[in-house]
């Protein structure tokens, strides 16, 4: 168990960050080069004004008609995305770890807030799971990958709470927390989670096509 801990705390963590940063960069550059070669129109039509206009409407809760048609999903999605990013990045324990390792520190949030945010993430994951299973228009499209991604996202939050509050078996939970978190980070560029890196581009492109060519809104 000690070996696993040292692996998770050392080489695996480094590998996860390298895969996240390197993988994202690699995928972005590769897609950019491919677009330059095969879809050059993407660069011609991309417009900062209309791209940001579209992004703005899609980053504001209820900014699009689709979001207004599904208030529960919209609220769950926005809370999920905000909490899933803010809680781990500004958690005191994480900030401290990074400060001790690399001497870089930033602000942190109170532990109570991080707890609440983790619970929100887990609740949203349950909501997504139920929706994926029960809603025909989602279940029809779902494969094991979609369920796996959901589990992958939920795991670090469940185990994080578990180990922080020292529930029974928290030592194991701590190691699973580290491993699942690392797996999550490393898988972002290579799974459906890649929408993290591609969303701003595809949305901005559609916004540009609608705005600059079609003279219409896309939200």
């Amino acid at each position: 168990m000690h070996t696993l801990y040292y692996l998770a705390a050392g080489p695996f963590a480094i590998a996860a960050f390298v895969l996240l940063a390197g993988g994202s960069l690699f995928r972005l550059v590769r897609m950019g080069l491919l677009a330059r070669k095969k879809d050059p129109a993407v660069f011609d039509y991309m417009s900062a004004r209309y791209g940001f206009r579209s992004l703005f409407h899609w980053l504001v809760p209820f900014g699009s008609r689709g979001m207004r048609l599904h208030p529960a999903l919209t609220i769950a999605s926005f809370l999920f995305h905000v909490c899933a990013i803010v809680a781990p990045v500004f958690l005191y324990a994480h900030v401290l770890l990074i400060d001790e390792s690399w001497n870089i520190a930033w602000v942190h949030i109170p532990d109570g807030a991080a707890d609440a945010m983790s619970l929100v993430v887990i609740a949203a994951c349950v909501f997504f799971l139920v929706r994926r299973m029960k809603s025909p228009e989602v279940s029809y499209l779902s494969t094991w990958r979609d369920y796996a991604v959901l589990a992958l996202v939920a795991a670090p939050f469940v185990t994080g709470l578990w180990s922080f509050h020292q529930f029974p078996g928290f030592r194991y939970a701590g190691i699973i927390h580290m491993l699942s978190g690392e797996l999550l980070l490393a898988s972002i560029p290579f799974t459906r989670l890649s929408h993290m890196i591609f969303f701003p581009i595809t949305r901005a492109y559609m916004g540009s096509e609608f705005g600059a060519v079609r003279n219409a809104r896309d939200w």
């Binding site: 879809d39 599904h70 999903l73 029809y140 499209l141 459906r192």
Partner: peptide, 19 residues
């Protein structure tokens, strides 16, 4: 090229297009 590949890779199967 990039458009089809990106669309295929990133679709989160959320079903919002049904509307």
């Amino acid at each position: 090229g990039a458009r089809l590949k990106t669309y295929a890779a990133m679709c989160a199967r959320c079903g919002m297009c049904s509307d």
